[in-house]
Amino acid sequence: DEAEIPPTRTKSPTVAELQYALISARPYEMTSDDVLFEVFATRNEIAADKRTEAREAFFAKDQACLRSSPLGKRYGWGIHHDADGRVALVAVGSDDYRALALTPR
Rank of each mutant, 00 (worst) to 15 (best):
D1N: 04
D1Y: 03
D1S: 10
A3I: 00
E4R: 04
E4G: 01
P6E: 00
P6M: 00
P7R: 00
T8A: 00
T8W: 00
T10W: 02
T10C: 00
T10H: 02
K11M: 03
S12P: 00
P13H: 08
V15H: 05
V15N: 04
A16L: 03
E17I: 03
L18V: 07
L18D: 04
Q19W: 04
Y20S: 02
Y20H: 07
A21Q: 13
I23G: 05
S24P: 05
A25K: 11
A25C: 04
R26S: 15
R26C: 12
P27M: 05
P27E: 09
P27D: 10
P27K: 06
Y28C: 01
E29W: 01
M30F: 08
T31Y: 02
S32E: 15
S32Y: 09
S32R: 08
S32L: 10
S32A: 13
S32Q: 14
S32T: 13
D33P: 02
D34M: 03
L36D: 14
L36V: 08
E38K: 05
E38F: 09
A41Y: 10
R43H: 11
N44C: 05
N44D: 04
I46F: 08
D49R: 13
D49N: 12
K50L: 12
A54Y: 03
R55D: 02
R55I: 00
E56T: 07
E56F: 07
E56G: 07
A57P: 01
F59W: 02
A60I: 01
K61Q: 07
Q63D: 03
A64R: 13
C65A: 14
C65I: 10
S68M: 11
S68E: 12
S68G: 11
S68D: 09
S69Q: 06
P70Q: 13
P70M: 12
L71D: 10
L71K: 06
G72K: 13
G72N: 13
K73T: 08
K73E: 09
R74H: 15
Y75N: 11
W77Q: 13
W77A: 12
H80R: 06
H81N: 09
D82L: 06
A83H: 13
D84W: 05
G85N: 05
R86I: 02
R86N: 04
R86K: 11
R86W: 02
R86A: 02
V87L: 03
A88I: 07
A91C: 12
V92G: 15
G93M: 10
G93N: 10
D95M: 15
D96L: 15
Y97V: 13
Y97W: 15
R98L: 15
R98K: 15
A99Q: 13
A99C: 09
L100W: 08
L100T: 05
A101W: 05
A101P: 02
A101C: 14
L102Q: 14
L102E: 14
T103G: 04
T103I: 05
P104I: 01
